[in-house]
Design a protein around this nucleic acid. Structure first.
Lengths: 334, 334
DNA sequence: AATCATTATGTTACCGGTAACATATTTAAA
DNA sequence: TTTAAATATGTTACCGGTAACATAATGATT
């Protein structure tokens, strides 16, 4: 029923190896023969069987993207943008992208390794990994090609693309300080993400540098989502010295906090200022427009794809550690 | 180097067929033997080769999701939510999801068919197809399993999940009318999407039913995105009888229009009211909060996945045409 | 004890390509 | 003209599983 390479070969009166050569463009085939074969292929609408090719060549031409499941939609804007970046990379066109939703805490230590061992993938990209994920180390030991997005670990077994979170966070803090805000609190996001750690460090360092008050209670860990930030914001605003500004580790966190602030009858930025991080679409649409530090999410994805390809094809060997710039986007919230 | 079923078989002193039976759970294997094999599998961390399995069984256990490329991010919130729905379907867990970005107008007529013929996929889901896409018909003729999301075509060769766009649009229109708005214009979205057509029909019918003014110039075709709507809104507001309300065929369209309206110094809803469609995240965050008609995007995705599975496994045969409900979400914009 | 159904396991062939090696033909170089 | 290099094609084996059929062992039924 379905056409195989053998059918094409028979019709062209050659061996299937010659057809295979025409298909892959490797090896030598006489021009006329190649054209004859190509015409037959076109005429019969033959498409090679990807699976058979993969089995034989030991390359699936598929890249996997690991996305962690969340209680809500597993693809928020952050993931969507990074993902779009991966897909948009023109060199990646010959590869297919498979989405692999994974439970953060489920599965055994070899979960990623097992995914790699199924032979279905040539490489993996991780979006939003955490530093305490033991499954990652098991994979790293195996030598299977993978790249982490927005995760920093200067190890020879890890490839990553990250943004300059520390510098970006300093930008945010100095912006607040320049505007005269002194009592600055930090909604940290999940501190198992290296992003959050870097931003936290910058928060502390910058406060110290400018000789400003630092208070244990002023660092509030949250998840990287709106609802959790909404809940955690209340305690911040009720404490003794009410802060005058909030540095939120992400825009979603900032937006959750803003909702709570508004509900408490306070205004932004008059009663309390706020600055976010990421610059997602929402940031420029919300009222007041959110001042934030932009991460180039799309580029992050593009780079991750490119690095993975270079590693798979052997173009690059050593561990690749790439950092992209962050920029301050001034709007209305501070 | 890499472990194969043969290695397991040898170690367990059985044929590889017995191991295969243990892996698939099909056929009969003595309890003790099965346990012995399973222990060895666990001990050696063996993972079956997915590719080899696919070639032999003629099932890839992969579903493809066709997403159309756009000038901006290919995954907007609409796509992200539908996609999340597909992935979240618990029964789909045994399947993997592949993302296939496609140029709307590129490729030949058999583009989808060719994708199907690579044998890499067991079925396809299309997000945001258009009625004038000839590539779809070529695929339909082949009998390859596929499901369309948010696309309506009552043909025996098409399976789809759609929302009740017509009813939803009537809800929107009647809401405006009940509030006393009489001069209502329509930003239609792309009329090659059946969604837009249904909403357009409802717009016309409802105007007629309530005996309201209908004006050719009051229907403005747009793309389903913010920027295009922003551009097209100007002409609407400059025409002779300025409308008092806008029915936008999607939230992104509404948001683009709102931006333009605000820039022209008009206020919403006092000078002009607006209602959207979809209920994306932005709708409830923007100022004023956007009144809209909610489409259950996540459920749309879940259903699409389920229907596709049922078709692949033979649980359902005939064409599946499913409609989900839409609901009015009242907020501040009208 | 004989017969049949069920369970347990093995054998063989094949899925549809490509790698690796072999061979024939053509072209270039000595 | 001879020889080496490059081009053109074919042959064989194999990638790692599963389907289909065959056979052996066990259990149930008469």
């Amino acid at each position: 029923m379905k056409l195989t390479i053998q059918d094409i070969a028979k019709k062209a009166e050659v061996s299937k190896m010659t057809v295979s050569r025409v298909l892959s463009g490797k090896g030598h085939v006489k021009k006329e023969t190649a054209e004859r074969i190509q015409n037959i292929i076109r005429e019969l609408n033959y498409e090679p069987n990807f699976i058979a090719r993969s089995l034989s060549s030991k390359q699936s031409m598929i890249l996997g993207v690991i996305i962690f499941k969340t209680p809500t939609s597993i693809i928020d804007e952050y993931v969507a943008q990074v993902f779009s970046g991966i897909v948009d990379n023109s060199e990646i066109q010959q590869y297919r992208i498979m989405v692999l939703p994974v439970d953060r805490d489920g599965g055994d230590e070899n979960e990623y390794l097992k995914i790699a061992r199924t032979n279905m993938l040539d490489g993996l990209i991780f979006i939003r990994s955490r530093i305490n994920d033991p499954k990652l180390d098991a994979l790293a030991k195996s030598g299977f090609p993978f790249v982490l997005v927005n995760f920093k670990k200067f190890s020879p077994h890890y490839n990553f693309v990250d943004t300059e979170n520390y510098k970006g966070a300093v930008l945010a803090m100095e912006h607040l300080i320049n505007r005269g805000y002194k009592k600055i609190v930090f909604l940290s996001g999940n501190l198992f993400e290296t992003n959050a750690r870097d931003r936290f460090k910058a928060y502390q360092d910058t406060l110290k540098k400018y000789d400003l008050e630092y208070n244990e209670g002023w660092v509030v860990p949250t998840e990287f989502d709106e609802d959790d930030a909404y809940l955690k914001t209340e305690q911040l605003l009720k404490c003794d010295h009410r802060p005058t500004a909030i540095f939120a580790a992400s825009d979603y966190i900032a937006i959750g906090a803003m909702r709570r602030i508004r509900e408490m009858g306070l205004t932004i930025p008059n009663d309390i200022a706020i600055i976010g991080f990421d610059d997602i679409e929402l940031a420029s649409h919300i009222q007041p427009k959110l001042t934030t530090v932009r991460q180039p999410l799309h580029e992050l994805g593009q780079n991750a794809g490119q690095i993975l390809l270079d590693i798979i094809t052997g173009k690059r060997k050593g561990p690749v550690h790439k950092m992209l710039k962050t920029t301050l986007i001034e709007r209305e919230s501070c």
